[in-house]
């Protein structure tokens, strides 16, 4: 039920916003500067690796469309996570994303009696609206670019996640992100506050009450094409007996051209049912 509401809200927004203004655009695409649309975070929104930023994805300016698509693979000690999706940006103002997170339980699946390589799929619908500021241009002001967004997560393993203690399989996260490029310091900072009840990014459904979580990213620009940085993301811990931890990553992002970005990271996702899940994160993004 809620799933339907959110899906239709997302698509009403998509059709409503895209058709009218976007089709009338005559300007080109892709005029913003390299890496200023961020990359695609694991839930499909423009951001870092683990957290959405206030930047609008793609390279479209205030009178252009932007778009990007991505594929991400994370290989931790006991699992693998694939994430892929696309986003559409209108006038550097609104961003709509749709993505899939495919979580492979590998041998843990077998030990839970689900068979090895059991997969949980989450489909995530995202919308983000930039509400104030310009992270890139307003270099004489400390006001960050601020965006609010929603990520609705539709989990396909209703029975499983409920048997693990989730109250619901599907649900929405709400966030506000503040991003600022401190260009004189070659530094980009982001802070995101998220209201969520998602267990393990939504892979294990939703439990308990909405709680605020904090996410932070810092990236240092080494060249026009290369940024290095680190991120932190706190998460709820609502499933009895299945401890959940804060996630971290350290990354390098490289954009050889405007249409391509490669992100390599080392991620520590903490305990996910078993063990401490660390491993390599690689992401490819095509942007316009």
């Amino acid at each position: 039920m809620t799933s339907k509401i959110w899906t239709s809200a997302a698509f009403a927004a998509l059709t409503g916003c895209v058709c009218a203004p976007a089709m009338a655009q005559t300007a080109g695409m892709s005029d913003r500067l390299l890496l200023t649309g961020g990359v695609s975070e694991v839930e499909g929104a423009a951001g870092g690796g683990l957290t959405p930023w206030a930047l609008i994805g793609g390279y479209g300016t205030r009178d252009q469309l932007g778009a990007s698509g991505y594929y991400t693979h994370v290989d931790t000690d006991d699992y693998s996570l694939e994430s892929f999706g696309a986003l559409l940006a209108v006038n550097d103002r609104v961003e709509f994303s749709i993505s899939q997170q495919r979580f492979n339980l590998q041998d843990v699946g077998a030990s839970l009696g689900l068979g090895s390589n059991y997969k949980i799929d989450v489909t995530t619908y995202g919308a983000k609206v930039r509400v104030l500021g310009d992270a890139i241009l307003e270099q004489d002001s400390w006001i960050p670019q601020v965006a609010v967004g929603v990520l609705y997560k539709d989990n396909n393993r209703d029975t499983l996640v409920k048997s693990l203690g989730a109250d619901h399989s599907d649900g929405a996260d709400f966030y506000v992100s503040a991003t600022k490029l401190l260009l004189a310091h070659s530094l980009l900072l982001n802070a995101t506050a998220r209201l969520t009840r998602a267990n393990q990014f939504g892979i294990l459904g939703q439990s308990g009450d909405y709680k605020p979580e904090f996410e932070g990213s810092a990236a240092y620009l080494l060249t026009r094409k290369i940024a290095v940085g680190a991120e932190i993301r706190t998460k709820p811990d609502n499933l009895a007996g299945l401890k959940e931890d804060t996630a971290y990553d350290a990354f390098v992002a490289y954009a050889p051209t405007k249409n391509l970005a490669v992100t390599l990271a080392y991620a520590d996702l903490g305990n996910i049912v078993v063990g401490d899940q660390r491993g390599l994160y690689i992401s490819l993004q095509a942007g316009f």
Binding site: I5, A9, A12, A13, G16, C17, A20, P21, A24, R62, D63, V90, N91, R93, V94, A127, V129, V148, V150, A172, F174, L195, Y210
Partner: peptide, 23 residues
């Protein structure tokens, strides 16, 4: 055109706020 766009966005967020009482 940009204004319509913004307005749409705001309306959607407003509905989200209303629904969830999180404003």
């Amino acid at each position: 055109m940009r204004h319509e766009n913004l307005f749409m966005g705001d309306q959607i967020m407003y509905r989200i706020y209303r629904r969830t009482n999180l404003s």
